[in-house]
Amino acid sequence: MALHWFPGHMHKALKEIKESLSQVDVLIEVLDARIPYSSENPEIARIRGDKPCIKILNKFDLADPEMTARWQTYLESERGVKTITTTTDNPGNSKQIIDLIRQACPRKSTQPKVINAMITGIPNVGKSTLINILAERIIAKTGNEPAVTKGQQRINLGSGIVLYDTPGVLWPKVENPHSIYRLASSGAVKNTAMEYDDVGFFAADYLIQAYPALMRERFKMEELPATELEFLEAAAKKRGAIMAGGRVNLHKICEILLKELQSGKLGRITLESPEMVAQEKIEMAEAAAKKAADKAKRKQKFKDGSLTPDKRDRKEKRTEKREEQSNRMKKTPR
């Protein structure tokens, strides 16, 4: 599936983030706890450098708690990174973010100097709600669809901390094909930018393998079908997603599955693990190496030309004659 979701305002926002980052003491990146890797913007990681970073795994109440703990260990293995879990419904942990900001800037926290923090995150990750909780007032507009915040703004949180808010941004090209599906499955992109059937099949395939007990319980099945298509067909009959003539409405059942996944009705589910991502990175590196080799091969073929053996011999002879002629001219007295 191709992801067509990088509108002009996102390109502008990413540029503004890069320009403002030099004024920032600590970076806060809000991640979706269900997809910590896929919701992490590689452009932000690239330009962050050695700047301290707090990664907030939001929507923790929707994610598999055991998997979230493993992700926190994995993410904190990177130098300068601290993690914390939050939920949009329970702001309790959100207040600890202020303490983490101060801990990330020990020199400034003991002096009367302002700590500048920047908060970033992909669309629909809950960043605006979190900002309102931190500011203890309505600052950022919230919504249940991606790309609500459009421009960058500065927010005085009090106690010597200024927060740079940024619009939710994806990145120009999502390299990992699995991440594209996970972003769509979690609701990080608008419905118009994805195909329900395609994403639904991906989600169904993962869910019946990773969370079979939850799927059996939710869809009232004694045994799960072996394939995603069979599961969707059986689920459609359970939910009445049937068209005229008794045909299964795959679009409808995929829409139902994705909406229940995004709302947490299926249970606490995480769509990726550190081990999965490690293997996918190996596959991506291998694919990139193959692509580079194929490109070099095509370039060399273009350089050589589409020559038959006879034409190649004639070309080589012409080249030899030109070299002989050039040598004779060099030897001729002037």
Rank of each mutant, 00 (worst) to 15 (best):
67 M>Y: 09
68 T>R: 01
68 T>S: 06
68 T>W: 01
70 R>I: 11
70 R>T: 14
71 W>S: 02
71 W>Q: 02
72 Q>N: 08
73 T>G: 08
73 T>V: 09
73 T>H: 07
74 Y>D: 09
74 Y>I: 06
75 L>F: 10
76 E>Q: 09
76 E>M: 09
78 E>P: 03
84 I>Q: 15
84 I>A: 14
84 I>Y: 11
85 T>R: 08
85 T>L: 06
86 T>L: 13
86 T>N: 15
86 T>I: 14
87 T>W: 02
87 T>I: 03
87 T>A: 01
88 T>Q: 00
88 T>G: 01
88 T>A: 04
89 D>T: 08
89 D>P: 03
89 D>M: 06
90 N>K: 12
90 N>R: 13
92 G>Q: 00
92 G>Y: 00
93 N>G: 12
94 S>E: 09
94 S>F: 04
97 I>G: 04
99 D>H: 13
102 R>Q: 13
102 R>G: 11
102 R>P: 09
102 R>D: 06
103 Q>K: 09
107 R>F: 15
108 K>D: 07
108 K>H: 03
108 K>E: 11
109 S>C: 13
111 Q>S: 14
111 Q>L: 14
111 Q>H: 12
111 Q>F: 09
112 P>H: 11
112 P>V: 09
113 K>Q: 01
114 V>D: 10
114 V>S: 12
115 I>L: 08
116 N>R: 07
117 A>I: 15
118 M>A: 14
118 M>K: 02
119 I>S: 07
119 I>G: 05
120 T>C: 13
120 T>I: 15
123 P>D: 01
124 N>A: 10
126 G>N: 00
127 K>C: 06
127 K>T: 05
128 S>H: 06
128 S>N: 08
128 S>G: 05
129 T>H: 10
130 L>C: 04
130 L>S: 08
130 L>T: 05
132 N>R: 12
132 N>D: 13
133 I>F: 12
133 I>L: 06
134 L>E: 04
134 L>G: 03
135 A>Y: 06
136 E>V: 13
137 R>G: 07
137 R>T: 10
138 I>H: 10
139 I>D: 09
142 T>P: 05
143 G>H: 03
143 G>K: 08
143 G>M: 04
143 G>A: 05
144 N>M: 00
144 N>A: 04
145 E>S: 00
145 E>T: 00
147 A>T: 11
147 A>Y: 08
148 V>A: 07
149 T>N: 01
151 G>W: 05
153 Q>E: 15
153 Q>N: 15
153 Q>F: 15
154 R>F: 03
156 N>R: 00
157 L>G: 08
157 L>S: 12
157 L>N: 15
158 G>C: 11
158 G>R: 15
159 S>F: 04
159 S>P: 03
159 S>Q: 10
160 G>T: 06
160 G>M: 04
163 L>P: 05
163 L>K: 01
165 D>I: 13
166 T>G: 05
171 W>C: 05
172 P>T: 08
172 P>Y: 07
173 K>I: 08
173 K>L: 12
174 V>D: 06
176 N>L: 13
177 P>S: 12
179 S>I: 04
179 S>K: 02
179 S>Y: 09
181 Y>T: 11
181 Y>W: 09
181 Y>R: 10
182 R>C: 06
